[in-house]
Amino acid sequence: MSYNVENDRGHNAPCSNRDFDFFYRGLVDQRLLVQKCSDCGTLRSLPSPCCPHCRSFDWQEYPLSGKGVIHSYVIHYHPPLPGFTSPHPVVLADMEEGVRILAAMDGTPPESVTIGTAVTTEFVRRGDVAGLRFRLV
């Protein structure tokens, strides 16, 4: 069964909804986007339909610089992941704009991935889907 129905949302990432579409469209355009509340200005990273601070539904796309510092990470070993080679680093970073972003850090040796290390973002294709990953600065 496939839920990845044909759509005109401007991306082909699997399993998205209308709250998350902007993020994947941003990756297609090589932009790392978060939401910025149009009323109170608060940035929110994990997409959601409403500002948890002022409850406004109005928001704008806000591009991040891509620069951050590793807050935590995991090196995935087992079981094998579709689309990635093990060992596979996944990094949660504190971005300089004050929000967190989770992204792969494949392409960097796992032993170089440590908490507090500065990272920046690069855009990649994973199969036919636009993606991103961190790398060392």
Binding site: P14, N17, L46, H76, V90
Partner: peptide
């Protein structure tokens, strides 16, 4: 694409699966 699954997929895109 339930409300929880779009988050699992968003994290899954990083290889957190």
């Amino acid at each position: 694409p339930t409300s929880d699954n779009v988050i699992f997929a968003y994290h899954g895109a990083a290889g957190l699966m």
